[in-house]
Design a protein around this nucleic acid. Structure first.
Length: 495
RNA sequence: GGCCCCAUCGUCUAGCGGUUAGGACACCGGCCUCUCACGUCGGUAACAGGGGUUCAAGUCCCCUUGGGGUCACCA
């Protein structure tokens, strides 16, 4: 049994599609890749991998006005960044007009579609009138029963679907359960525009059928399109795929993510645009992990490797309510991935972020050493770059509160002693360094290592928090460390 | 407004009739400690409301409320 009640959800089964799962991601190239779009791409990708199926990328560019090549590149680039490799495509709808034409002719020949000469203005007026009268607007069928062989001359016309006015009572959704179909909304919708271009709902059906798509996994905003698409499948005598409508993604305030509020989002650490996450210093796999987990779950687990994701993902555990982007959790996840990252990889990734701070460097050994203690402290790459600043430039000023607390006159002695001891110590031996510091503490500060360390930390970094002092000294080197200590000595206890 | 969908801590969620309602982020404390962070231990915090069904309801049904989606010659 697929379902046991009207609102219960069906249990998932591959049914007749065993071993031939084919899914697709079908964005329209009208701008950068939307974060909500990525989520549907991820779910499709994961679904394909999970069931050994095929993931295809189709570009929905039937609207020539708004589509552009640049957007296509951005979409593919973003998918590559996220490691969402597709098996087929990109397939461009704009290049498949013959296919659409053939299906249109078939419908026309069979009387399942007809030419309509109503103008956009007329239609608009009727729609407004219906609205004013608080009526539901559907096409009134003015051209429905006219003689198909009448001579239209040069009159522009659209091609409409001759709605058979019969449809199932409901359709099955793998995520939502059973969705009722409202017969009152079934009308003669437009298949081909007056400029000859096919419409979305028509192309989707023809394409999905032609490409052998077994499961249509898409956003919730398409549920109302599904009935009319099912009717078309039936009119075309094509097999109807399975449908799965996933919940949408919302902003922190609970409303739909809108491009207009991008500025606001950025300040909170999120964005509508995928590529912006790269700029904000998020790791692609952390983003994918986050987006997947937003709306899907596997018990209490939060962190999933790509392998786990492709082995565990299933539609049954996709939630039905929309999710709100939570920057804090995204950052936390990112931090988890950062922590587990390879030093060399991180060094590579960090270079451009350092450049943004005016620090030109390469991902050399030294940078790898710097990155190592920082990766468990930073949540994002820019944050890490910021933290590593003092490894490249000596502090120009010192934290005021730190000066007050740690640079009392008595601190001068320990700073001076450390400065001198650096002459004889092997800086690469952090335990030896620590030992020396501890001895000093025993002697000067009653064994309190912090009292020795903090003044020096301030002198070396300009701030009162950092990774281990010994690590810092090792990375800075003898000369630079002593220079910074000398400079500090000039001011300690002087006020 | 019509139609459709949704509803457990602030957020993401576990829960598929019997639980002290669990986990994660965030927040607050303790521990660890050269500071910060990591880590670790603990704490605050939820079943939207009302009716049913049932021996028993967060779990099933209905209504209300709230949120969302959609109503194009856009996709």
């Amino acid at each position: 049994m697929w379902f046991s009640g009207i609102t219960s959800r069906p249990s998932f089964s591959l049914g007749g599609f065993m071993n031939k799962v084919r899914v697709r991601f079908a964005p329209s190239p009208t701008g950068y890749l939307h974060i909500g779009g990525v989520r549907t791409a991820i779910f499709n990708y994961l679904f394909a991998r999970r069931y050994g199926g095929t993931f295809v990328l189709r570009i929905e560019d039937t609207d020539r006005e708004r589509s552009n090549k640049d957007a296509v590149d951005q979409i593919i680039d973003s998918m590559r960044w996220l490691d969402l490799d597709f098996d087929e495509g990109p397939i461009f709808q704009s290049e498949r007009s013959d296919l659409y034409q053939a299906q249109i002719n078939k419908l026309l020949d069979e009387g399942k579609a007809y030419k309509c000469t109503c103008t956009a203005e007329e239609l608009d007026a009727k729609r407004k009138k219906a609205e004013a009268e608080k009526r539901n607007y559907t096409y009134d069928g003015t051209c429905r029963d006219l003689d198909p062989s009448r001579d239209l001359g040069t009159t522009l016309f659209t091609i409409r679907f001759r709605n058979p006015r019969v449809a199932p009572d409901s359709f099955k959704d793998l995520i939502l359960g059973r969705i009722p179909i409202d017969k009152n909304k079934l009308d003669d919708w437009i298949l081909v525009r007056s400029d000859g271009s096919p419409t979305y709902n028509f192309c989707v059906v023809v394409d999905d059928a032609d490409m052998g798509i077994s499961h249509v996994i898409r956003g919730n905003d398409h549920v109302d399109n599904t009935p009319k698409q099912i009717q078309l499948y039936q009119a075309l005598d094509l097999p109807v795929p399975e449908f799965a409508h996933m919940p949408l993604t919302h902003g922190p305030d609970g409303s739909k993510l809108s491009k207009r509020r991008e500025q606001e989002y950025r300040e909170q650490g999120i964005s509508v645009s995928v590529q912006e996450y790269r700029n904000m210093g998020y790791l692609p796999h952390a983003l994918v992990n986050y987006l997947t987990r937003l709306g899907w779950s596997h018990g209490d687990q939060e962190i999933f490797s790509r392998k786990e994701l492709t082995e565990l993902f299933s539609l049954e555990h996709v939630g039905r309510s929309s999710g709100i982007m939570n920057p804090d959790k995204l950052k936390w996840l990112n931090a988890q991935y950062l922590k587990e990252s390879d030093d060399a990889d991180l060094a590579d990734l960090l270079v451009p972020f350092l450049a943004e701070l005016g620090i030109e460097t390469t991902a050399d050994q030294r940078l790898q050493k710097i990155v190592h203690p920082l990766k468990e402290r930073a949540k994002t790459l820019p944050e890490m770059a910021q933290m590593s600043k003092y490894f490249f430039v000596a502090p120009e000023s010192y934290e005021a509160k730190g000066i007050k607390k740690w640079w009392k006159a008595t601190a001068a002695e320990s700073v001076r002693r450390v400065r001198d001891q650096l002459d004889d110590l092997n800086l690469d031996d952090e335990t030896a360094l620590e030992e020396a510091f501890r001895k000093l503490a025993d002697e000067l500060t009653d064994g309190k290592l912090g009292k020795v360390a903090q003044p020096i930390r301030l002198a070396l970094t300009g701030v009162t928090f950092s990774p281990s002092l010994f690590t810092i000294i090792a990375i800075l080197g003898r000369e630079e460390s002593q220079r910074r200590l000398d400079r500090a000595l000039a001011t300690i206890g002087k006020e």
